[in-house]
C-alpha cells in the first residue's frame, strides 16, 4: 500500500487503512507528515471524552459500556486505550481489550491500544494524532482511556472535551493520592463498582473536593454512580456528558478550549522542532561530558553552562551555519 492508495482507502472508510495510518503516525514512519497534512483538511466533528482513574477502578469496563451506550443511540465510537511502556525494555502489555469483549466485533466501534513509549514530543501529542485520525475517519465519539498515573497520562485526558475521573470504593487512599493532579481536571466524577460497601465515603470525599476545588467554577462536576459490569448508571453518565457538552457550547467555551489546545500543541511542537534541530549541533559543538565534569568539580553552575551552550549555537546560526526552515 503506497501512501496515496492508503489515503484513498482511508477516505473510503477502510479500517485496514485506518489501522495502518495510525501505525505510521505513531511510529513516525516516512510519510506520516503527508497523512497528517491530508487528514487535517477535514474532521473536527468528533467529541472527545477522556477517562482516567486508578488501576482496578474498572475503567475499561466502563469504557466498554459507555461505547455500547453510544452505539445504541447510533453513534460511531473510536477508542484509544493507553497503557504504560516498560522504561527498562520498551515493551508494553496492552490488556484493555480483555474488558471490551462485548463491543469488540461491533462494526461501528474501533478499539486501538497504545503504549506510552518514549514518545518524543510527549505521549499526549502522539495520542492527539491518533485521535485526529479517528476524527477524520468519521467517529462521532472518541474515548481516550489512560491510567491515572504520570503527568503525560493526565495530559491526555486533560485535553479532552469532557474529562471523566473514575473512583471506586475500597481502594483506600487513592482519592487522597490523586488529589494533587487528577481532581482539579475532572468535569464528571464517576464512582464505579457502586454496589460495593464504602460508596458513601467516596461520595463524601468527592463532594468535599468538588466544593473546594470548584467553588468558583461555573460548571460543578456531577458525581455519577455506576456498576459498569452490569451496565448500571451508563445512561446517566451519557446524559451528564451531553449536559457538559451543551454547557461548553452555550458558554462559548467549546471552541475556546479547542483553540487553546491547538495553540498549546503548536508551541510544544515548535519547541520540539527547535530542540530536534539544534540538539545534534549541541553534540557537535560542545562536549556535554566536559561541561558535566566542570559542574561536578564546582567550576561552573548549571545555568551558566546551559546559557553558554545556547549562545554558542546562536553564534553559529548568525554565521549562517544553522538555518531555520519555514
Amino acid at each position: 500500500m503506497d501512501y496515496d492508495e492508503l489515503i484513498q482507502l482511508f477516505k473510503e472508510g477502510s479500517y485496514r487503512a485506518l489501522s495502518r495510518a495510525i501505525s505510521i503516525v505513531e511510529n513516525k514512519e516516512p510519510g506520516f507528515r503527508k497523512i497528517i497534512a491530508e487528514i487535517s483538511r477535514t474532521g473536527g466533528n468528533g467529541y472527545i471524552i477522556g477517562v482516567t482513574g486508578p488501576p482496578g477502578s474498572g475503567k475499561s469496563t466502563l469504557v466498554n459500556e459507555l461505547a455500547w451506550g453510544y452505539r445504541s443511540i447510533g453513534k460511531r465510537v473510536g477508542i484509544i486505550a493507553v497503557d504504560p511502556s516498560s522504561p527498562f525494555t520498551g515493551g508494553a502489555f496492552l490488556g484493555d481489550r480483555v474488558r471490551m469483549q462485548r463491543i469488540a466485533t461491533d462494526k461501528g466501534i474501533y478499539i486501538r491500544s497504545m503504549a506510552s513509549r518514549g514518545h518524543l514530543g510527549g505521549l499526549s501529542a502522539a495520542a492527539r494524532n491518533v485521535s485526529r485520525l479517528l476524527d477524520a475517519f468519521g467517529f462521532e465519539i472518541i474515548i481516550m482511556e489512560t491510567v491515572g498515573v504520570g503527568q503525560s497520562e493526565v495530559d491526555i485526558v486533560k485535553a479532552a472535551d469532557t474529562t471523566i475521573i473514575v473512583s471506586v470504593p475500597g481502594l483506600g487512599d487513592d482519592i487522597q493520592a490523586n488529589k494533587a493532579g487528577l481532581m482539579e481536571i475532572g468535569n464528571i466524577f464517576v464512582i464505579n463498582k457502586a454496589d460495593l460497601t464504602g460508596v458513601e465515603r467516596v461520595e463524601m470525599e468527592l463532594d468535599k473536593i468538588i466544593k473546594m476545588a470548584y467553588h468558583s467554577a461555573s460548571w460543578k462536576p456531577p458525581i455519577i454512580k455506576t456498576v459498569a459490569s452490569r451496565g448500571e448508571g451508563i445512561t446517566e453518565l451519557i446524559e451528564a456528558i451531553s449536559k457538559h457538552e451543551r454547557y461548553l457550547k452555550d458558554e462559548g467555551l467549546f471552541s475556546q478550549k479547542r483553540r487553546g489546545r491547538i495553540e498549546e500543541e503548536l508551541v510544544t511542537l515548535i519547541s520540539d522542532h527547535l530542540f530536534e534541530h539544534f540538539s545534534p549541533k549541541i553534540e557537535d559543538k560542545v562536549s556535554l561530558k566536559a561541561l558535566t565534569d566542570k559542574i561536578i568539580n564546582h567550576e561552573l553552575d548549571l545555568y551558566s553552562a546551559a546559557e553558554a551552550v545556547v549562545e554558542s549555537i546562536l553564534k553559529e546560526k548568525d554565521k549562517g551555519g544553522v538555518k531555520i526552515e519555514t
Binding site: 475499561s60 502489555f93 490488556g95 484493555d96 480483555v98 474488558r99 459490569s229
Partner: peptide
C-alpha cells in the same frame, strides 16, 4: 444474570 468477562492481570 449476565456473563462474566475476564480480569486484566498485567
Amino acid at each position: 444474570f449476565g456473563e462474566y468477562q475476564g480480569a486484566d492481570i498485567f
